[in-house]
């Protein structure tokens, strides 16, 4: 049986306390929310914190609140299965509820949280392996070695952004709230991520993600389309998050398209976005915008399914995601 390494388990009662414990232990510490990402990593020994800080007792992280200005704030510890069934989200944020439902399995969604999904570790078929497997190939740079096995000449790690919600919330221009040693700050979701397989987050390690804030449901339409082998269990090997703002005449005023599963962060399909602005969303325009999305899809051979095929079907998926925004 795969088992967890030993660690000290903390259950702080406030966000400040959680942050303080993390700060005190530095790299030896990690937060845990649902545990569905961290514990498998620990069992495979590629994350081995000796201090595990559970956020389950931290107040204020467990609710979904509609703010006075119409935005919706989701506590980081809210379970994914709560979100997928939440009436407000299903009604006004159908794409978000759908993306949540696309995550893994119902059993896992009963445990996993939105905070955990937003901060999901990047994935790679050279990384998400047991200690023994990684030892056999010689450890990669994400686990303390020197090489990136996907691109051995590369100075950087190419592990893949694999959260289903991230491309969508980035496209929707949602915000995230972070609590650190010097207080609370709110940033655009897109600013939370970096193009690096190892340092894939911009936040400080001890900073605690407390809330996801979705924009008020007015003037835009979003969609999420996921490519994977099976309709459950699997992480996205391509996840298209699209959000389109239109004026009263149906002319696109702004469009965001983010490609998940195609790089170390949710990549913007900027050429496609530019094509859309100022025009009506016709079938022809959607096809053209799709075709323009092939270039940014930087698929690598470190996920399920063939790398070239994933790149080739990216335009189809982008077009279909846009069609769903009509």
């Amino acid at each position: 049986m795969l088992r967890l390494p030993t660690f000290t388990y903390h259950r702080p009662k406030t966000a400040a306390e959680a942050v303080a414990i993390h700060k005190a232990h530095g790299k030896a510490a990690m937060f845990v929310a649902g545990g569905t990402d961290l514990y498998p990593n620990m069992k495979r020994r590629h994350q081995t914190p000796t201090e595990v800080i559970s956020l389950q007792d931290v107040p204020g992280l467990h609710s979904v609140d509609v703010l006075p200005d119409g935005r919706v704030a989701i506590g980081a510890m809210v379970k994914l299965s709560v979100l997928e069934h939440h009436p407000t989200l299903k009604q006004h944020y159908a794409a978000f509820a759908h993306a949540v439902r696309e995550i893994s399995t119902p059993l896992l969604r009963n445990m996993g949280t939105i905070g955990g999904n937003l901060l999901l570790d990047t994935r790679c078929t050279y990384y998400d392996q047991s200690h023994e497997w990684r030892e056999s190939i010689d450890f990669c740079m994400k686990t303390g070695g020197a090489i990136c096995w996907v691109a051995p000449g590369s100075p950087r790690c190419w592990a893949v952004q694999s959260s289903d919600t991230v491309p969508l919330v980035c496209a929707m221009e949602a915000q995230v709230e972070l609590v650190g040693t010097s207080g609370t700050r709110t940033i655009a979701a897109g600013e939370l991520y970096r193009d690096d397989g190892i340092q894939y987050l911009t936040k400080q390690p001890e900073e605690l993600l407390t809330r996801l804030i979705l924009p008020a449901p007015r003037g835009w339409k979003a969609s999420y389309l996921k490519l994977r082998r099976r309709d459950t269990y699997d992480f996205p090997v391509l996840g298209v998050g699209a959000c389109v703002w239109t004026d009263a005449a149906g002319v696109v005023t702004k469009a965001n398209i983010r490609l998940g599963g195609a790089g170390s962060y949710a990549i913007a399909a900027t050429d496609s976005e530019k094509l859309l602005v100022g025009k009506q969303l016709t079938d022809e325009l959607i096809a053209a915008a799709g075709a323009a999305a092939q270039k940014p899809a930087r698929t690598m051979d470190n996920t399920d399914l063939d790398v070239y095929w994933r790149r080739k079907v990216a335009p189809v998926y982008v077009a279909r995601a846009l069609a769903a925004c009509k």
Binding site: T125, D128, Q129, S130, R230, D231, T232, Y233, D234
Partner: peptide
């Protein structure tokens, strides 16, 4: 060599 990545059919 894992249940997740050695793909086998699900209910769907």
């Amino acid at each position: 060599p894992s249940m997740l990545e050695y793909k086998s059919p699900s209910v769907f």
